[in-house]
Design a binder for these strands. Structure first.
Length: 415
RNA sequence: GUGGGCGUAGCUCAGCUGGUCAGAGCGUCGGGUUGUGGCCCCGAAGGUCGUGAGUUCAAAUCUCAUCGCUCACCCCA
């Protein structure tokens, strides 16, 4: 095998593209019911957009970005996530000016230079929602509802919605301080990784799978114990709305997100059927991010569905057959049949015929494979008689139809 | 970046105590039905046994290296 796709980049093959289309179409339908509009931003942005947006000291920015120099020396990066680029576009085009709210969705590829494994690729696809302009708990709930609805309408797998609130710039620092203090005291009991995390990203210690760390962290200060009144109220209302929308969830005080910009609501939808990378969809609130990227002080909340991960949880799509197959024997027959096929296709029927000069047996085999329920057969005898054969592949019944009636006869059948 | 597993026909794999070891099933193509698919029967095409080096009279089989895939860690959709 001399030539192949680069590591972590996958082809979506014909037998799989049906499910991609179904998923995209399902998502669009759902977004329509929430009044969202699609935005499509470039996959390439100036590096600065992501560095500032996602956080300089996140893993994504420090070691996972596809970054390279443009010919003029600009540092460019293939987007590792959607939000920063969308916010750039919102600010650039002042999309917030036309109305107090902005409800957007997008779908497309993201790029992260990680070691690939099950459910993790270097080019992967997300379906994203970004809702701007309201600090109310309602958009949080709607965001989660959309994610839940997309997943639920596309898989029967077990799904677990976990919710947490990371607090706001007022109360989060208090918790962080207490947590760091706690971790410092317990430092020699933590695993190596967690000793490092204690400095770099203390919240991550909650995620450690090490039993000892886990035990220690059960006593650790949780964000919710430090929530200010506003944050506590906000979280409570998000949960209330979820109940009103009949969406099942569990609170997870340990839930942390990898991106710096999240405040208050964060959530993940996981599936135990997935492997180590079990998060199918995730999101959260990012008030302050728009301002940080140079725009107005616009609150926002968003979510992302991992397309490949969701597709891992869905059965293969059934391949749909075409409407009609035309078996034509010989050049004259193919020419006779061509205008008919052209007309059928103009009328929206899916019609195939054999391109090459094949035996009738071979053509029937191809017809069978095509999944067509009906076959039109035209050979020398039919040319002489000026009658085509219409064969029902299921019942094997055949009827002769005069050439001048065959186009309409077929159209009638499919009406 | 680290660790484990695996690389034999288009696909799924067998063969791996070195010596008919280059195979099976599925798929493809052709024939059985001089013009009729699915089932059945027969046949054919298709492979540098990931790559390179080494050990040996002899390597798909043993050793080393290398590349790739995969799962896991880290982290995340």
């Amino acid at each position: 095998m001399a030539i192949k796709a680069i590591r972590g980049f996958k082809d979506v093959l014909p037998q799989d593209s049906t499910r991609w289309q179904q998923l995209e179409s399902t998502a669009r339908d759902i977004f329509n019911t929430y009044g969202l509009k699609e935005i499509r931003t470039p996959v390439l942005e100036k590096t600065e957009i992501f560095a500032r947006g996602i956080g300089e000291h996140t893993d994504i920015v420090e070691k996972e970005m596809y970054t390279f120099e443009d010919r003029n020396g600009d540092s460019l990066t293939l987007r590792p996530e959607a939000t920063a680029g969308i916010i750039r576009s919102v600010i650039e085009h002042k999309l917030y000016a036309a109305s107090p709210f902005l409800k957007l969705f997008t779908m497309g590829p993201m790029f992260r230079h990680e070691r690939p494994q099950k459910g993790r690729l270097r080019q992967f696809h997300q379906i994203n929602v970004e809702l701007f302009g309201s600090a109310s708990p309602l958009p949080d709930a709607e965001c989660i509802a959309m994610a839940w609805q997309i997943l639920r309408s596309f898989t029967d797998a077990k799904l677990l919605l976990e919710i947490n609130s990371l607090g706001c710039p007022k109360c989060r620092p208090l918790h962080r301080e207490a947590l760091v203090q706690y971790l410092t005291n317990a430092k020699d009991q933590l695993c190596e990784d967690c000793q490092r995390r204690a400095d770099t990203n203390p919240l991550r210690v909650f995620d450690c799978k090490n039993e000892e760390c886990h035990r220690i962290m059960r006593q650790a200060p949780l964000v919710k114990h430090y929530h200010c009144v506003d944050c506590a109220t906000h979280l409570g209302q998000v949960l209330d709305f979820l109940e009103l929308m009949d969406i099942p969830f569990v609170q997870n005080g340990y839930l942390v997100r990898g991106l710096d910009y999240y405040v208050r609501t964060t959530f993940e939808i996981k599936s135990p059927d997935l492997g180590a990378q079990s998060t199918v969809a995730a999101g959260g609130r990012y008030d302050g991010l728009v301002k940080m990227l140079g725009g107005p002080d616009l609150p926002g909340v968003g979510m992302a569905v991992g397309v490949e991960r969701l597709l891992l949880l869905t059965p293969e799509a059934e391949q749909e057959g075409i409407d009609l197959f035309v078996a034509a024997l010989g050049r004259e027959a193919r020419e006779t049949v061509t205008p008919w096929i052209a007309e059928w296709r103009r009328q929206g029927l899916a019609v195939e015929m054999t391109w090459d000069d094949k035996s009738l047996k071979a053509q029937m085999k191809q017809a069978d494979r095509s999944g067509a329920g009906l076959v039109i057969i035209v050979g020398e005898n039919e040319i002489d008689e000026e009658e085509a054969i219409l064969r029902d592949m299921e019942t094997k019944e055949q009827e002769n139809i005069p050439f001048d009636a065959v186009v309409n006869r077929v159209l009638e059948i499919f009406e």
